[in-house]
Amino acid sequence: MAFVNLQNVTYQYPLTKTPALQNINLQVDEGEFVAVVGPNGAGKSTLCYALAGFVPHFFKGEISGTIEVAGKESSKSTLDEWVLNVGLAFQNPFNQISGAKYTVFEEIAFGLENIGVPREEMKSRVEDAMALTGIRDLADRSPYSLSGGQQQRVALTSILVMRPRLLVLDEPTSQMDPIGTREVFGTIRKMAEDGMTVVLVEHKMEWIAQFADRVVALKDGSILLEGKPGEVLTSDLLAENGFGSSRYTSTAREAKKRGLWRKENLPVTLDEAVEGFALTLPFSSPKGAPRGRGESGK
């Protein structure tokens, strides 16, 4: 059975008229990296909260259907048990700072203190997690003195250190610079390869195509489409429904209309675009991927 299993999940926040999630069926295998895309208001954050147990345990409201992670059912579990398996980081980094700690090191240790990890193990886990996300040099700074992008790294590290089996991330890199974003995606990818299951909400299509195993497209609280990144992110259905796309996809789509794209499938990544457009430009000599660091994918 799938590691994450959502069956017919419909959910409505209190005091609202329409459901935020409608009849969601979603299965994710252990170690799989699933990206969730969709316009604002599609229900992406609500889906994250549902996976992380905050819907309905924290937000209340009406829910039907079942949410299972690691063989446990959300409705039969309490939130404090649930979070031991499922970690959540979201967009606004400032509001994720606990407020109880004076340094980044203490901040990252906060969760481990709460769940009773012994001191020596705690220290080494904090060190390891900081090394993983590249924030060792921030250890003694106050979390409040950091920039938005740095705070986002701290928020992510604070969850990674808990070693959740399912990691739920809601736009975790929105305030990071492009190369910082790529590094963080590389880290998350590696965590997935080591067996962590990842569900990630993201607008940056190019990175999704390079790092995710599968893409789920949400619209108006329902799943519009799901499948391999290359198929979902290039589908006309998404373009018609106001989803964003990488410039490679949108430009190739336009090129196809003008007869300048000769392949059947549209590209999502740089490599795919180079390969396809090389057919149009018989005289060009495509250069190999110049730089490493995740540029050429997994």
Partner: peptide, 8 residues
């Protein structure tokens, strides 16, 4: 980046 890789 695409243009560069294609040698434009």
């Amino acid at each position: 980046r695409l243009g560069k890789r294609l040698g434009l």
